[in-house]
């Protein structure tokens, strides 16, 4: 058994196969990075919507809360299918990669909104009050006072989330997006040993994810205890 795998090694680790896998890995990374950055931008808007004051903004607050609570309770795979079928149903022309990106943003914005909310909640109301009394506008308070303090609460879970997302993008393989997992399936159907193929794919995911989770853990230790500075 082992002989067969070993005999396959030179045939598998060819330049062509490696480029194929690395390109797919690049796509996994791209989806993660774009998904998390757009997710954070949208998550920020969602949190802002949830914090609007007064009765006039109540519908917006409810909508944002509903969005966040809903999309954190639907499996990523199901979201991907809904986006795919909705786009087909309405006859938009969007590439499979585009479909995956939309699905990723829908779900990552909901999770990011929660991370951002926890970060902002860690800043005491008195900081807002103090700034308001000094005639800071809401955005000015956000920029000069709240964000510079909240980012250290937001960053560690953001890294944990990104690591989670690298892994979740594997589900985009079901749509046919040529990311790392899909590349593994392709090579496997070409007759390479599944042990070799999926073993390699697992290692490549690990290479992407491990440094980030270490960085996140380091940041958590680094940023957690001290305040200010």
């Amino acid at each position: 058994m082992l002989d067969r795998i070993i005999s396959e090694v030179p045939r598998f680790f060819t330049y062509y196969n490696m480029v194929f896998l690395l390109e797919a890995m690049g796509r996994t990374l791209l989806m993660t990075l774009v998904g998390v950055s757009l997710g954070f931008a949208l998550g920020f808007l969602l949190d802002f919507a949830r914090r609007t004051p007064g009765r006039a903004w109540l519908p917006l607050r409810l909508a944002a809360t509903l969005y966040v609570e809903t999309f954190r309770r639907i499996p990523f795979l199901v979201i991907l299918f809904i986006v795919l079928f909705a786009i087909q149903g309405f006859r938009f022309s969007v590439s499979l990669f585009g479909v995956a990106m939309i699905g990723i943003c829908v779900i990552s914005s909901a999770f990011c909104a929660e991370i951002i909310r926890a970060g902002f909640d860690s800043i005491h109301q008195t900081q807002w009050d103090t700034a308001a009394v000094m005639n800071f506008g809401r955005l000015q308070t956000l920029r000069h006072v709240v964000l510079p303090q909240a980012w250290r609460v937001i960053l560690p879970p953001a890294f944990a989330f990104m690591v989670m997302f690298i892994k979740d993008t594997a589900l985009a393989s079901q749509l046919g997006v040529v990311e790392l997992t899909f590349a593994g399936k392709v090579l496997s159907t070409r007759g390479f040993s599944a042990i070799l193929v999926f073993g390699t794919v697992l290692v490549l995911y690990f290479v992407l994810s491990y440094p980030l989770s270490r960085l996140g853990a380091w940041l958590e230790r680094r940023l957690a205890p001290s305040r200010g500075r």
């Binding site: 594997a170 997992t181 593994g184 399936k185 697992l202």
Partner: peptide, 9 residues
Amino acid sequence: NTPALVQIF
């Protein structure tokens, strides 16, 4: 640090 999906694969 690896996807559950690929582990199951």
